[in-house]
């Protein structure tokens, strides 16, 4: 038995060409989901195979790669993917957002503004924003073809009728370049405004569902809303307990079983950079009162 050998960045060249062609069409048709022949990757479907294939197809020896999951470089899946590219591409890796040229992410857009030299690659589980309203691909494809998006507006409006708000907190649908309704991946809606008119190229890879889509730089990305119920980005009522940031997305840390909570930045690089600059938060776990009703 011969020990298997693998190509630069794991994928064979034919697969890379196929993915590269899909990426170019995705950029040419912003927000449209290009089908591609996703390969079996040495990690499970649903664990970032789409993002990994996109990253593998664009990555070169001069790149500096950053991988985050939930905003953090140190979550196990982020480490696992980073190590995969270190091993298969020998590429330089970094946790610094500003130094990275390619950033692969799951569930977050980091706080630092993206630059023109950067590419952000999203891992996407379900790329179809209409999927939970209409499970059939043949139907959703027709709806996109005709730009027939009434269904999703009805869903959002039903939320308002039931809850008084649009009850979508993450994977909040957007309209790209005033044409295609797109799923931003399960990022919190807090991050949606960062996608609009962004300087960097944003690429989205869904491995199991075999779709690639893109937002070119300087492209309008409008979160769906209504005139009387405009899109409201999520705001935290707290500051980061470590760096005191008031503008970042916060993780809730449960510190005991008596209701104590504290909030810290989800973007670990942002938080650490601020702490290095001398910003200090309360650093104390303070009780958080869950609002109750009888």
């Amino acid at each position: 038995m011969n020990a298997p050998t693998y190509n630069f960045a794991y994928l064979d060249e034919q697969t890379k060409r196929m993915i590269r062609r899909a990426i170019l069409k995705a950029i040419a048709i912003p927000g449209y989901q290009v089908p591609f022949a996703s390969r079996e990757m040495p990690m499970p479907y649903g664990w970032g195979t789409g993002g990994v294939q996109v990253t593998a197809a664009i990555l070169g020896p001069d790149d500096r790669l950053k991988v985050i999951d939930q905003g953090s470089d140190d979550t196990t899946n982020a480490i696992s993917i980073r190590k995969f590219f270190q091993k298969t591409a020998g590429v330089a890796v970094t946790t610094s957002t500003v130094n990275a040229t390619v950033i692969q992410t799951r569930h977050r857009i980091h706080e630092a503004q993206l630059g023109a030299h950067q590419v952000l690659v999203y891992q996407v589980p379900i790329p179809e924003p209409l999927r939970f309203l209409e499970p059939r691909e043949t139907e959703t494809r027709r709806m996109h073809a005709l730009a027939e998006y009434g269904l999703i507006h009805v869903k959002l409006y039903e939320d308002i009728a039931r809850f008084g708000h649009i009850a979508t907190a993450y994977a909040y649908p957007v309209k790209v370049n005033a044409r295609y309704v797109m799923d931003p991946s399960p990022t919190p809606k807090f991050d949606n405004p960062k996608m609009d008119n962004c300087e960097a190229l944003q690429l989205f890879g869904a491995g199991r569902e075999k779709r690639i889509y893109a937002i070119p730089p300087y492209t309008t990305v409008q979160s769906l809303d209504f005139e009387d119920y405009p899109f409201e980005p999520y705001k935290h009522k707290a500051c980061c307990a470590l760096c005191n940031a008031a503008d970042s997305y916060l993780d809730e840390i449960v510190t005991d079983d008596k209701g104590s909570r504290m909030f810290v930045c989800s973007d670990t690089d942002y938080c650490e950079t601020r702490q290095a600059q001398g910003h200090r938060g309360s650093e104390n776990a303070s009780p958080f009162a869950e609002s109750r009703h009888a």
Partner: peptide
């Protein structure tokens, strides 16, 4: 060098398409 040249050319085309 097929692998590296293809990658570098693709990035150039991708940048061109994105801008």
């Amino acid at each position: 060098d097929k692998v590296i040249a293809a990658q570098s050319t693709f990035r150039t085309v991708m940048d061109a398409m994105a801008r």
